[in-house]
Nucleic acid binder design. Structure first.
Lengths: 332, 332
DNA sequence: CGCGAAAGTACAAACGATTGCACCAAAAAA
DNA sequence: TTTTTTGGTGCAATCGTTTGTACTTTCGCG
């Protein structure tokens, strides 16, 4: 492996100059910089990131902590983030929290051990506040939160416009003539879900409809939970469901099918996240799309921007988009 | 940040002993090791990975190179690999090749710069041989290939049992009474796809059926390609398709639906990969499941095993599993 | 022509962990 | 008792890069 000393020797200068030349000028003569760059190229030099990290106290690596990497949403976020990080010479170290605060802490410790320059995180559902994040992140690392954020923590936050998304989804159902619209609301420990519930409520009241706590279903965010909620919703006379997830929406569709209801004629459903299957099932599922790839890019960009001292990125809200499909379209 | 010197001072011993104590005994007294471990814990010590990497010449990091992270299959492989690596104190550095050899080389260089201990890779479809991999991987890094492998390269290889998978899938269609079965075969640059085609052919000839080159469709591995292939297959009198991917299978289903054919009564389809949507669509899609999570675990385990000098892992074949669903089940 | 400023480089000390070698003690063998 | 072995530690160099400080040029200007 060729080092900067090798380059220095070969040019009759010192490693310090080579280092400076390679890290963007500063105070090196244009001609020496060129010479250094050329010989570096010629000799096949590749910076030893470990040495650099040790000396500088932080590495050209950004940690990404997600509940699970093999979820459509998160893998797309990571994909987007990686593309931006790559452009700027950073790599991504991926950790999973498995929706578990202890694993989340462990991940943060790993990242601190690796002296990462930044942490992009979407917290585990079991984490009810961000204390443990602050405690286990290196003080010099830049913290960027996305999707599931704690507004109490400092730093950039990239979130979906959950409030307006849910608002639009609910309004769409109302406009389609559904009269009693329930919601599968998720966990209120997450600000994202809380905002969606608020959007739903606001839409109802703006359109002159009543808010009925009996058809607000908290908890489960998996298909089975949606199925259970769907059955109860039907028992209580709902003719539509706004769901804060597509898997739960799928469960609700299943419940409706079991009762022999026609979708969308008798029962309407709008989900959230626009999972890949949503366009493919029959009937196809209307959904509030979240643009995870874009969110990943934004998160990485927020990190890059925050590297410049003084630069501050606040909250970035990425709009959600209603994808109208069969499950909610009874009026053409 | 507390260092081993801090621990040493606090115990009145030297950093060398602390280092040895922390890295599994070797030659330290049991009592001192305990003392070291306790004070390390008490002082909140966390190893500086950068320093360790610099000194040792390699880091506690494994690079994972995949075409795209936001594909169901790969994100699951990564999830599996990460879970094993984590157990052994390794982290995963993720790079995407975007199915592009140049990006693949760039990724390998990044990993070399980071002095990773190993590289887990599934090569880009545009890479026709593994020369560039050998050239750009650090000589001391352990190379593990999975799914898409070059058998010409050394080191462990984790592959699906593509031959038998395709064999089973095709046989299943034959057993269901389909008489003219085409195949959407993919690109022959990939050994995985070539093996699947062979399995298909073998099944046909074993069951006394003719192999007809006119209903073997090479190329495209996306939905649209499957749709086009499906239309031609129907024109040529096929009553079933074995597809080497689920997206292409989906396209074939679409073609059948357009012709007003009933599935599975008039036309049978078996896909490959068991994408998440496959169970959810109507009719549900039969598919050869690949167990990506398991493959990821195996790949990581192969890396861990290979760390021990002398230990050699060869080729590991993970069986594929036929998931029978509606699209191919006309006999109960 | 001389002096100060500016520009360009060199020196050397870090960063924190690891490890070959030397060393000392205590235990075992002679 | 002396010698050898072995079990534990300490010493000090090293990994490759970065960066504060000091030094040498070169140049401009009075």
């Amino acid at each position: 492996m060729v080092t900067i000393s090798d380059i220095a020797k070969s040019l009759g200068i010192t490693p310090s100059t080579v280092s400076r030349a390679l890290s963007g000028s500063e105070r090196v003569k244009e001609s020496t910089r060129k010479a250094v760059e050329e010989t570096a190229e010629k000799m096949g030099y590749e910076r030893n990131e470990a040495a650099s990290s040790l000396r500088k106290g932080r590495s050209k690596v950004v940690g990404i902590v997600v509940p699970r990497i093999n979820r459509e949403f998160f893998s797309n976020v990571i994909g987007g983030a990686e593309s931006v990080l790559d452009e700027h010479g950073y790599s991504a170290l991926i950790c999973q929290s498995h929706e578990n605060t202890l694993d989340e802490i462990k991940a943060l410790k790993t990242l601190r051990s690796n002296r990462v320059s930044g942490v992009l995180i979407s917290h585990a559902i079991s984490s009810t506040n961000g204390e443990h994040i602050l405690e286990n992140i290196a003080p010099e690392a830049i913290l960027v939160q996305f999707d599931r954020v704690f507004s109490s923590l400092p730093g950039p936050k990239i979130i979906s416009d959950n409030f307006h998304g849910a608002y639009e989804g609910t309004r769409h159902l109302i406009e389609q003539g559904y009269k009693k619209i329930g919601i599968i609301a998720g966990f209120m420990t997450s600000e994202a879900y809380a905002a969606r519930l608020n959007g739903y409520k606001q839409a109802l009241s703006d359109m002159g409809m009543e808010i009925d706590e009996d058809i607000i279903f908290y908890g489960s965010i998996v298909q089975k939970g949606g199925y259970e909620a769907g059955k109860i919703a039907l028992d209580r006379g709902c003719d539509a469901i706004f769901s804060t997830g597509d898997y739960t929406a799928l469960g609700a569709l299943q419940a409706a099918r079991e009762r022999g209801l026609r979708v969308p004629e008798d029962f309407g459903v709008v989900g959230t996240a626009d999972e890949r299957f949503s366009a493919l099932i029959t009937p196809s599922l209307s959904s509030m799309a979240q643009h995870p790839y874009e969110m990943g890019r934004r998160a990485a960009q927020a990190f890059i921007t925050s590297l410049k001292p003084g630069a501050k990125v606040g909250e970035i809200v990425v709009p959600m988009e209603l994808i109208k499909r069969e499950s909610s379209s009874r009026i053409q």
